[in-house]
Design a protein around this nucleic acid. Structure first.
Lengths: 198, 198
DNA sequence: AGCTAGAAGCTAGCATCATTAGCCAGCATG
DNA sequence: CATGCTGGCTAATGATGCTAGCTTCTAGCT
């Protein structure tokens, strides 16, 4: 029996592709093995198990997303950068729903977890976008979390099929980006009482 | 063998409680049966299967969330209503992580699907909040989707353990609410060119 | 009160999966 | 050429969802 010449990276990549094709929920060790022309137990030579596979796919996805967004905002600033970043994230989720689904609802085991590292890398381009706005240093964490929440929320809802969704999604997305842009601008200009509370 | 006196509602409620306790991922037909003092196959007299159970739990959760948010915004308007709604949703997700997880990433089979109906009911209190802002009628759909994305995003990230999260989450949440408030206010005051496009 | 029919429970059994144990073949190094 | 590691395999186990088919309880009718 000839060797298939697999490796951890190849297995993870194939798993990510398969998840994108048939949906993350349908990603099974058996199907992945079949896709790779190999019997199921052989996968365990490259991956510790399904959970490990999922986490590796998630880390890969976060890394790829970070790269795509970073590239998208090159040379842009302010609202242009915000829009570019948001669009790039959305495009990634639409193009890779399985990969993205793998990133939902997982806890890094520690600060050295590849997932935590990849997540940190994904935060970086968003930090860059934020630098184009006039945000108080004490508020950057909040602003980062806000951006993450907003676009993550939109992406998951859209990727999950939304509810009554379907029509006008593009417009709604641009509207959402503008809302965030307005919020970030206004937040820097006016520092009302409530910001002085904490 | 004495009858347990179950019914679909009782099974679904027990499933929702169990999901909140041990996590939605750990909700299994066997465990639920055990909790109800019944053998696994008996559940199939009340529920078509695991998928059906999950969808019913999701519908229940959406319905309960809609009720909680609706109650929370009674007598409030504008920013007060927005904050109350957002806090109520967040409180619900924190108190019922299993229920909420059941609502993530499911597609209603049709407009008559109980999930679609419950989702529509959840939209209602948010519509009420929006009425406290001066949003152009053509933009209400976008604004609704925006609110849903924002708070869904924050809730899921927080429920999923977040990433480097943990500290200052409350502050970040309030900051996010204020950002949306600013965005909604500014969106009504200024009607820039892009709003006149469609 | 007794009969009947359907609802609600049960045992047994099957299919699918993830996972482990243990074997064997190819390849690279001495 | 021997040797040992690596990566593939078969076989088997245990968990889980689900179906089939039997039995018993109970509601409702006569």
């Amino acid at each position: 029996m000839p060797r298939a010449g697999l490796g951890t990276a190849a297995v993870v990549a194939a798993g990510a592709d398969l998840a994108d094709e048939i949906g993350f929920a349908g990603l099974t060790m058996g199907r992945l093995a079949e896709r790779l022309g190999v019997r199921t137990p052989s996968l365990y030579k490259h991956v510790a198990g399904q959970d490990d596979l999922n986490r590796r796919i998630a880390a890969l996805a976060l890394d790829e997303a970070a790269g795509a967004i970073g590239a998208a905002i090159q040379g842009l600033a302010g609202r242009d950068a915000l829009r570019a970043a948001a669009r790039a994230l959305r495009a990634f989720v639409v193009a890779h729903p399985g990969r993205y689904a793998a990133t939902i609802g997982l806890e890094p085991t520690g600060p050295e977890d590849p997932i935590a590292l990849a997540a940190a890398r994904l935060l970086e381009p968003f930090s860059a976008v934020l630098r184009g706005y006039d945000i108080a240093p004490a508020d950057t964490t909040h602003a980062l979390r806000a951006m993450r929440s907003v676009f993550h929320g939109f992406a998951t809802i859209e990727a999950g099929g939304g509810f009554q969704w379907a029509t006008g999604t593009d417009e709604s997305f641009e509207w959402l980006v503008d809302l965030v842009d307005r919020g970030l601008c206004a937040g820097s200009a006016t520092q009302p009482t409530r910001s002085a509370v904490h």
